[in-house]
Simulated assay, not measured.
Amino acid sequence: MKNVGVIGGGTMGAGIAEVVARAGSTVRVLERAEAVDAARERIAKSLARAVKAGKLAEDESTATLDRITVTTDLESFADCELVVEAMPEIESLKLEYFHKLDDIVSKDAILATNTSSIPVIRLANATRHPERVLGMHFFNPVPVMALVEIVTTLKVDPAVVTKVADFARDGLGKRTIESKDQSGFIVNALLVPYLTNAIRMYESGFASAEDIDEGMVSGCGHPMGPLRLSDTVGLDICLAVAESLYAEFGQAHYAPPVLLRRMVDAGYLGRKTGRGFYDYSK
């Protein structure tokens, strides 16, 4: 796939754009006018970290950045073979852009969503060709995490699934797993209840954040404790997935903790805002 579009230049969108451009594709990233510079700077900083860590040569970093264009013009996505939507977890916003893209890209183009929780079929049905729409769920940080979840719907063309999975594996060097279109898919359906249980434990005063995390790192061999992991994922994302799981299955253990809601209300979303269960301001 030589021409790829990414809708959204935030943490996930910028990461997706980077890995696709590093694989040699030309990438267009759609952003609001006031966020264009920030999106490009986000990608440039990530590439600079890769160079500093010895994972990427300086000339490769420059070439990667040259293959990325951050734009406000959705019409420029007309020649994209694949468009990956990576906007906030707001269903109405995603629906709006899938409807718009349906009129812009060719009938052979593939539309994918990076949603963590919204049923993919709802987004597919916003288009005239739901058979070309699927989930392509990356993980944060995208340049580091090896996995892509390929989420299939009842309407998707199996050939589209194969093409996207092959691109993720052979083009991007990712590992892939395939999930049905169920809230949380595979990873978040297992992960988020674990995270929210840890938040409830902390909320109750049973143990400190540090001890909860240390227990799972040193006692269970996890690379990161659940509260610090929640901060890394983003507490807004944790809340959105927990709400989706609860709405889908109606079981009490899926309901998001009150503390999680209040922290999101306060704007304490974790690493990306400098504060969550831990202080990242320094």
Rank of each mutant, 00 (worst) to 15 (best):
P88N: 11
G13D: 02
V20H: 03
G184R: 08
M145W: 09
H99W: 01
G250P: 01
I110G: 02
L195G: 02
F249N: 08
A255Y: 11
S244V: 00
E91K: 14
C238Y: 05
K155T: 15
A48Y: 05
T196K: 03
Y97I: 12
A63W: 02
T115L: 10
S281D: 04
D102G: 01
R22S: 12
I199E: 00
L154A: 13
P193F: 06
L191F: 06
G219P: 03
P193K: 03
Y97W: 13
L101G: 10
D59S: 13
K155Y: 02
V151Q: 11
G24D: 09
G274K: 11
G234Y: 05
I16G: 01
L101C: 08
G276H: 06
G270C: 04
M145I: 07
P130F: 05
R275L: 15
L227M: 11
G276F: 03
V27R: 04
G135M: 05
L134M: 15
G215F: 08
A252R: 13
G225F: 14
E41S: 14
V4G: 01
R49V: 04
R28M: 10
E131Y: 01
D211L: 13
I150C: 12
V151Y: 07
S183F: 00
S116R: 00
A242Q: 04
R228Q: 14
T153F: 06
H129F: 02
A44N: 07
A168M: 14
K52W: 07
V264F: 06
S281F: 11
A86Q: 06
K272H: 12
S218L: 15
K282V: 10
T176N: 10
E91S: 12
D236A: 08
V6D: 05
H253D: 04
N188T: 11
T232R: 14
A124E: 00
A165D: 08
R262T: 15
L235G: 07
D213R: 09
T176Y: 07
A189R: 15
M216D: 05
A255Q: 14
K174L: 13
D102M: 00
R228D: 00
Y97T: 06
R22F: 05
Y278T: 09
